[in-house]
Design a protein around this nucleic acid. Structure first.
Length: 800
RNA sequence: GCGGAUAUGGCGGAAUGGCAGACGCGCUGGAUUUAGGUUCCAGUCCGAAAGGGUGCAGGUUCAACUCCUGUUAUCCGCACCA
């Protein structure tokens, strides 16, 4: 059988008849399947990308056969660094590089016979697309959710360029190896923190995997605690945040983040200010990466001559700065209770600071007795003044009440999730559609002037002072203020790669609309994405950004549903054969086209899905190709046995297969679904003749996995209609068996396997088992104290 | 350090708390073939057997790959969650 020729024929036919086009407002029930749209890199589509498209294609094809109006679209997430760097290196324009890469990807995807609705293809770098990315950004701006703030960027002092985290991995510049430093830069921010609570609560309305919900919850990081107003002996005030106010009597020092503003305020009073500044500078040089990696060894610096007062005890304690305290979380300052916080414990040991145990019941000689250890265990306070003797829970409440009454502090909720740094000083992104006017400040570009198109530049590199290359084009930068008509300058930063992917599923619903990003009618019809498949690496950031944008649009009446995705599932990463990550630099990228050319699309698809559990990451392997090829050849040969006059002899195995394959597809267990197709095929092969109905069922079950050959065999045998016109169903009664083998245990040990009639009552079966020759002798003369019968599975007799 | 996951034959992997190893790969033997390949048939967790066996140590249960506690290793993500 020449699979490749058949596949070309069917792919052409599907395209001509627009077979997989999703119909707006169809009367059929809708089903929206989304795969993360790929980044069209120069490496080409590789087998790391393809499983998700194949897997969702299987679901899409099954759903269509079941009578759904399926939306299964595809597009390109094409802005961003890889293409920009490729452009710089090779001296081609990113526009051309993107177009070339997309053409390549498209060819590869089409060769696999994925049933995308190509009429809805989108590309984040098209002006007609990013016009709306800019427009949505302006809605954030108009609602006060886009603001300017100073944030650190990774800066290479040698290349004089801002680097992404990826480009400065390990704290060194990827290009020249120079250690990077943290450089403050004014940036656009999106106020995601305003949506923390909504993003948290909204998870309850979704059907994401529980592990994904947990990761999002942890990322949002809601934490309820106490804001405690503290002051230095010299009078200056500062706040700290703690979740463990019950340990307040155990404070033996305070620690501020190195960048904390209080340090500047009191610099005249710090005796060792030079030393403090040196520490601060050393910390600033550390990347996030280093701060994380170096925490085995706590570092810090005492503020000599500075003491703070414990607001509850009035006690005088020293103050330190230390970079284990982060400026961006809480208040950038902590109360240190070394007996009950492990980080404080380590810091105190290093700097020889005192320990005061205030929660009894633990041992604090070698490590801290932390809240995880004492909460909910009825532990009581000690060394805590009037609170000594109270339980932790009582004390927490009483101390908080006292603080609120006395004005020394209050209960607050904080979130770990930070606002989103939304500027990049780069070229290949959506220009931020704002202009700055001396008189009017930041003014949005009016809707009728959108999009602000990305101008052509000669050099794609940022400037030496770290500004976007757009800042070099004076005639572009200089413009007039849309508000007052005076002189103004355009913002030269562009948006991050994440922007275009934060609303793309909405554009698929109405991809050619030039009046709105998508019409509300169509949004109402397609509504929530029913299943969204992507990589585990996007579970926190992309998924939160996307939900954030969607919720913002919902709050402004622009979409009809509060959550964008109902189900979120993820595929395992396909690694190279040796278990390492696939990447161009390693030269271990596997091109699916290679297998399509050699074996054809159907076998390539089957072999991808047969490789193992879809959800687990695994190395690429080729040894699943052969068995899948064998399977298809066997199914083709089986056609010779099809006989118009034959009657079905396979009710049971067919019913079992329909049930198992249907359920397995829903559960993303494609590997076991294929196993069942193999089992069914083997079973049918035992027949001399096969009825048309039986063979049709086999082809329909195979179709989502291997659509080309299924269509072809259906046509060759002149069956009516098409193979995917309807999904096979079965009758419950066909699943009933006449004889079932059960295991028989005595004292939980298997002693026999017996065939039983499952229609007998439980009592009859137990009687039958006890009287069987295999069991009779073993239990003779003993007392049966317990009898367990698990239907159609086993009998366990407990005897004494 | 934190968060999420994973651990089963020579290999990939199956198993609503109920017969561990489905389905494959590989391997062994046989048939077909001038030969190789293809295809087909049989066997294949370990052990001679009694038995043993799902990373390791405990626990719950008539019964544990599955649930609980602890522990180790590996993978992914990360922004030291006070």
């Amino acid at each position: 059988m020449n699979f490749k020729e058949i596949e070309k024929k069917w792919q052409k036919r599907w395209e001509e008849e627009e077979r997989y086009k999703a119909i707006d407002f169809s009367n059929k029930p809708k089903y929206y399947i989304l795969v993360e749209f790929p980044y069209p890199s120069g490496v080409g589509l590789h087998v790391g990308h393809t499983p998700n498209q194949i897997a969702m294609d299987i679901i899409a094809r099954k759903r269509r056969a079941e009578g759904y109006n399926v939306l299964y679209p595809i597009g390109w997430d094409a802005f961003g660094l890889p293409t920009e760097n490729f452009a710089i290196k090779n001296g081609v324009s990113p526009i051309k590089a993107t177009a070339d890469n997309i053409a390549n990807f498209k060819k590869q995807i089409k060769s696999l016979g994925i049933s995308f609705d190509w009429s809805r293809e989108i590309n984040t770098t098209d002006e007609s697309y990013y016009k709306w990315t800019q427009w949505i950004f302006l809605q954030f701006f108009k609602k006060g959710l886009a603001y300017k703030a100073t944030a650190n960027i990774n800066w290479c002092p040698n290349c004089k360029i801002g680097l992404s985290n990826e480009e400065s991995e390990g704290g060194v510049c990827e290009r020249c190896g120079t250690p990077t430093i943290q450089k403050p830069k004014t940036q656009w921010m999106l106020k995601m923190s305003d949506y923390a609570e909504k993003l948290l609560n909204g998870l309850d309305d979704t059907h994401y995997w529980e592990s994904i919900k947990t990761m999002q919850r942890n990322w949002i990081g809601k934490s309820e605690g106490t804001l405690l107003h503290c002051s230095l002996v010299s009078g200056e005030k500062f706040d700290i945040f703690t979740t463990c106010i019950e340990t307040v009597f155990g404070i033996t020092y305070f620690v501020l983040a190195p960048e904390h503003e209080l340090v500047d305020k009191i610099k005249d009073k710090i005796k060792n200010f030079d030393e403090v500044m040196a520490y601060r500078q050393a910390s600033a040089k550390k990347s996030e990466f280093e701060r994380r990696e170096m925490l085995k060894e706590k570092t810090g610096c005492r503020l000599d001559g500075i003491y703070a007062i414990n607001p509850l005890t009035g006690e005088k304690v020293p103050v330190y700065i230390g970079d284990y305290v982060l400026a961006g979380y809480g208040t950038g300052a902590v109360m240190a209770v070394p007996s009950h916080d492990q980080r404080d414990f380590e810091f105190a040991q290093k700097f020889n600071l005192p320990f005061v145990e205030v929660i009894s019941g633990g041992n604090t000689t070698h490590k801290a007795f932390e809240k995880e250890d004492y909460l909910g265990k009825g532990c009581r306070l000690v060394n805590s003044g009037e609170y000594s003797g109270s339980t932790v829970e009582e004390a927490k409440k009483a101390i908080n009440d006292y603080l609120e009454k006395s004005g020394k502090g209050k209960r607050i909720t904080t979130y770990k999730m930070r606002d989103w740094v939304f500027s990049r000083q780069r070229y290949w992104g959506e220009p931020v559609p704002l202009v700055y006017c001396e008189k009017c400040g930041w003014v949005p570009v009016p809707d009728d002037q959108l999009p602000v198109t990305l101008p052509k530049v000669e050099r794609y590199q940022p400037t030496d002072d770290g500004e976007s290359p757009l800042s070099r084009i004076d005639e572009w930068v200089n413009t007039t203020c849309p508000h007052c008509g005076g002189k103004a300058k355009r913002e030269t930063d562009v948006m991050p790669n994440w922007a275009g992917s934060s609303w793309y599923w909405l554009r698929y619903m109405d991809p050619h609309n030039d009046k709105e990003f998508a019409s509300l009618d169509k949004i109402k019809y397609w509504n929530t994405v029913d299943i969204y498949n992507g990589g585990g690496e996007h579970v926190t950031r992309h998924l939160l950004y996307a939900r954030f944008w969607h919720k913002f649009l919902y709050d402004n009446g622009l979409v009809s549903n509060p959550e964008p995705f109902d189900r979120r599932v993820q595929q395992g990463i396909i690694l190279a054969s040796d278990g390492s990550k696939m990447s161009k630099s390693r030269g271990n990228v596997v091109d699916p086209l290679k297998y399509v050319n050699e074996y054809g699309a159907d076998i390539t698809r089957l072999s991808h899905m047969f490789m193992g559990d879809y959800v687990e990451s695994k190395p690429w392997r080729e040894d699943t190709l052969k068995p899948c090829e064998r399977l298809l050849n066997r199914i083709v040969q089986l056609a010779d046995k099809v006989d118009k006059n034959a009657k079905t002899q396979n009710k049971l195995i067919l019913a079992q297969s329909i049930k198992k394959i249907s359920e397995d597809i829903e559960d993303l267990k494609f590997n076991t679904a294929i196993s069942q197709i193999m089992v069914l095929t083997s079973s049918l092969e035992k027949n001399e003749q096969i009825s048309e109905e039986d063979y049709k069922t086999l082809l329909s079950l195979l179709c989502p996995f291997a659509p080309h050959i299924s269509e072809e065999m259906w046509e060759r045998l002149h069956f009516e209609g098409r193979v995917d016109d309807k999904w096979p169903t079965y009758k419950e009664e066909d699943l009933l068996e006449n004889v079932v083998e059960i295991a028989v245990q005595v004292n939980s040990k298997i002693v026999a396997r017996l065939d039983i009639n499952p229609n007998l009552t439980d009592a009859e079966i137990l009687e039958f088992v006890k009287n069987s020759s295999e069991v009779k002798d073993i239990i003779a003369g003993k007392e049966v104290v317990k009898e367990i019968y698990v239907k159609n599975r086993l009998v366990n007799l407990i005897v004494k």
